[in-house]
């Protein structure tokens, strides 16, 4: 097995007395695209937030060859770990261009930033059209594209995506997933959290199933798509 880029051992998240993540372990290898599916409230967002150090947690998080569980959230992007949060989290009062620049906040290579801005505008032409508009005026799909483009501006090695399809029309969901696929094709490692299990399993090679704070299944996407438990619980069959 190749060296894991991300390795999580026995991760716990609590909100007050309530346990949202109950000792999950997972690993994502360099260049992989892995998904985590599960019902609303299963603890997926809590797990991603803990990985991005946005909330306190117990357990070991290894990224590259380093423990990151004692780091602060703002120290991660420079190491190449980016989270596109649930609900997109664009800065509504900043323009599209300013949002993208914020994605490159930790970088100091002006030429590289300018080149990446071009690249993002190429990948997401809608953002170019709207670059002087404040992000709050964008549609949900455009905001999702912006959130992804903003994360790309940080030159991530590992991209954590939390429900990019949430609240989007089916056509827009297709577009967003197409973009995600292209990002993965460029070599970015992706951990994708989705409630839309079928779509997620179709684009990812492997998947984890999360249920009330625990990982109950972990297998290749093909195996999960064929699993009767997954089919009844998540694929609506």
């Amino acid at each position: 097995m190749a060296q894991a880029l991300l390795e999580v051992l026995n991760l716990h998240v609590h909100y007050g007395g309530i346990a949202a993540v109950k000792g999950i372990s997972l690993a994502v290898e360099q260049g992989e695209m892995v998904c985590m599916i599960g019902a609303n409230g299963a603890g997926k967002t809590s797990a991603l937030k803990a990985l991005a150090r946005m909330i306190p947690s117990r357990g070991e998080i290894r990224y590259g060859n380093q423990r990151i569980d004692a780091l602060q959230s703002h120290e991660l992007i420079a190491k190449g770990l980016a989270l596109v949060p649930e609900g997109r989290g664009v800065f509504a009062r900043l323009t599209v261009a300013e949002n993208l620049l914020m994605g490159a906040y930790h970088r100091h290579d002006a030429n590289g930033i300018a080149a990446d801005l071009e690249r993002v505008y190429d990948l997401l032409p809608r953002l170019l059209e709207r670059r002087t508009q404040v992000a709050g005026t964008l549609s949900g799909g455009e905001q999702q594209m912006l959130a992804i483009g903003r994360a790309l501006m940080g030159r991530p090695k590992l991209l954590l995506l939390d429900e990019p399809s949430m609240g989007l029309a089916p056509l827009m969901v297709q577009k967003v997933f197409e973009v995600v696929r292209r990002i993965a094709a460029e070599g970015v490692t992706i951990l994708l959290v989705e409630q839309n299990a079928r779509l997620a399993l179709e684009v990812c090679s492997r998947g984890y199933v999360m249920e009330s704070g625990s990982i109950t299944l972990a297998d290749s996407s093909a195996a999960l798509l064929a699993d009767s438990r997954v089919r009844t619980a998540y694929l609506g069959e």
């Binding site: 959230s73 991660l76 992007i77 980016a82 989270l83 989290g89 914020m102």
Partner: peptide, 19 residues
């Protein structure tokens, strides 16, 4: 821009590397 981003959402600004 980082100040305005932080004013809007300190957690998301943190994800961008803003201390």
């Amino acid at each position: 821009i980082a100040i305005r981003a932080t004013a809007e959402n300190v957690h998301i600004a943190g994800l961008m590397g803003v201390n």
